[in-house]
Each structure stands twice: as C-alpha cells, then as structure tokens.
C-alpha cells in the first residue's frame, strides 16, 4: 500500500515539477521581453525525447548512468517527508534522516559522471570536473548550515525539524536562525546550477557539458531527474528553513518561491568562471555558515 502512495506522490511531484519548469521558463522569457515557450513545453520535450526512435550506447555505464542518475533523484524523493503530519506522504523517511538525503545526492552525480565518462566526449568530462569541483565548495556552507540547525533543534530527522517549526512564520528557521538560512540559500544557488554558477553546462562555451552524448530515452531520464531533483531540493530547503508544508497547496507555493529564487538570480547575473565560483562559496556563504554555528 505504501508503494501506491509513494507512486502517487512521485506522480504529483513530476507533474508539478514539469509545470513549474514551464512557468519559470516563461517568466524568464518575460524578463527578456520575449513571450517564451508554452507552459507545457517541458512535457512535450520529455515526450519527444522518449519518442526518439534510434539510439546507441557507448557501453554499459553509458546505459546505466542515467539509471543511476534518476535513482539518485527518485531516491531523494523516496526518503523525504513531503507533507508534515501526513503519514501517507512521508514516503520512506523512516529509513534515514537528513544526512541520508545529503549523501543520496551523490549517487546521481556519480551516475552522471560515470555515464558521461563512458560516453568519452572530452566536453562531458570537462563539465563533470567542473561540476564536481564546484560542488565541493557549494556543500561547505550547506554543511555548516545543517550542523547549525542540527544544534538548534538537536535532531537530524527532517520530520522533527519541520515539527519544531510549526506554529507560524516566527517559528521558521528563517526567523529563528537567519544566518544558517542565509548560508544555505547561497549554497542553494550553486546546487541548482543556474547562472552565475552554470559554468558546468556552460552553453556556448562547453556545449552542454556532461550530457553532451546523451540522447533519446537517456536524455529523457536525465530530464525527468532534473525535474524531480529541482523540486525535491526546493522541498528539502522548505522543510529545513521555511517551516515545511502541511498540505499540497502550501508545498506548491513554497517550493515554487524557493525554486524561483535561483532562477531569478540567474536571469540577472552573468556567469562566473569555474575557479571564481569555487572560491566564491568559501567567502560570504562560508562566513555566514560559521557565524551561524557561533551564534546559534
């Protein structure tokens, strides 16, 4: 029975993510004074990619890479409690806590890296090395923030962290621990890989980065993962810093706003070089993280 609910949740999340992506693209287009794609464009792209007729494979890992990648994304979904106080949509969060989710992100990265590596395209590898390099320092402020809220709430269980934030906006971590929230939100920019931290894919410079060789169903899987991962990271931040959600409506609104923020930043700022972005996370965000631990 659990599985049915989990699949239902997954279905909702995927659809929500696709719609959100479409809407956000349209908003970005508006910022550039364009009309932009239809809001259902992500659906069509996905369908089109799954409907590609001819495919090839560079080898076993090229084939399995997208599976790993999607497993990483779905895994985060599976271990994340979605709706507070709702047993049905708490998924398998009883199997692990925040740390599990933090480390589950790596599975997807590893899958992408292995798949792209087996593809053998130099651009893919350049993208992967950039992504990994940037990721090392992106995680630093986030780790500090996590430690900070773990000290604050004396727990690493997401459900309990959400529970502690119930009772109005003044109980949110955003209000009770603004420094940690600040650090984490800055590292969120790096996690979502919109500009200024999108040198990993770096269109025009390093054509597309890691997924250069992927196509058809493989690409479709990567896109699906991107949709799930984006929403789930937003939900993670919502749970940790913005009071969680008690029903789907609040979840949609909060997730949208959180997701909107890196998109907004990306629409405004130009791109960092990779060594600049590696270092950037060690300055202001890390300083905030350290302060968050000191002043908790």
């Amino acid at each position: 029975m659990k599985i049915v609910y989990v699949l239902l949740g997954l279905f909702i999340i995927i659809n929500y993510g696709l719609l959100q992506a479409g809407v956000l693209r349209r908003i970005t287009a508006r910022v550039g004074k364009r009309i932009g794609v239809p809001f259902y464009q992500p659906y069509i792209d996905l369908i089109k990619n799954y409907a590609i007729r001819s495919q090839f494979s560079h080898g076993v890992m090229f084939y399995l890479g997208p599976v790993f990648r999607l497993s990483g994304g779905v895994g985060i979904f599976l271990f994340m409690p979605l709706i507070f106080g709702n047993e049905i949509f708490s998924n398998y969060s009883m199997a692990g806590d925040l740390i599990l989710i933090m480390y589950f992100m790596f599975i997807g990265m590893l899958g992408m890296a292995l798949g792209a590596g087996e593809g053998g395209h130099p651009y893919s590898i350049i993208g992967i090395t950039r992504g990994l390099s940037q990721f090392t320092t992106v995680e630093v402020p986030f780790t500090l923030a996590v430690i900070s809220i773990a000290i604050q709430y004396q727990t690493l269980s997401i459900t309990e962290i959400v529970a502690a934030q119930q009772g109005g906006i003044m109980h949110w971590t955003l209000m009770t621990n603004p420094l940690a929230t600040g650090a984490a939100m800055l590292s969120f920019l790096g996690m979502m890989m919109y500009a200024p931290f999108n040198v990993v894919n770096a269109p025009q410079e390093n054509p597309l980065g890691p997924p250069t060789e992927f196509h058809g169903t493989f690409l479709g899987m990567l896109q699906t993962n991107r949709v799930i991962l984006g929403v789930m990271e937003a939900i993670l931040f919502m749970n940790l810093f913005f009071g969680g959600a008690t029903n789907w409506g609040i979840l949609f609104i909060k997730a949208f706003l959180i997701y909107f923020y890196p998109v907004f930043v990306g629409a405004v700022f130009p791109r960092y070089r990779i060594d600049q972005s590696i270092r950037w996370f060690l300055y202001l965000p890390t300083a905030l993280g350290i302060l968050a631990i000191i002043f908790i």
């Binding site: 399995l64 599976v67 497993s71 009883m94 199997a95 692990g96 740390i99 599990l100 004396q154 727990t155």
Partner: peptide, 23 residues
C-alpha cells in the same frame, strides 16, 4: 542516536527496488 536514525537494510532494499524498476 539522539539526533537521527538510519536503516541500512531498508535503504538498500528501497534503493535496489528503485534501481531495478528504473532499469
């Protein structure tokens, strides 16, 4: 622990199931 919890066996099962289905 007093902070968190972790169930390796269940994680492994969930992961294997998920991986298998996606594959």
């Amino acid at each position: 622990t007093s902070l968190g919890y972790w169930d390796a066996t269940q994680i492994m099962m969930v992961f294997a199931g998920m991986f298998g289905v996606i594959f």
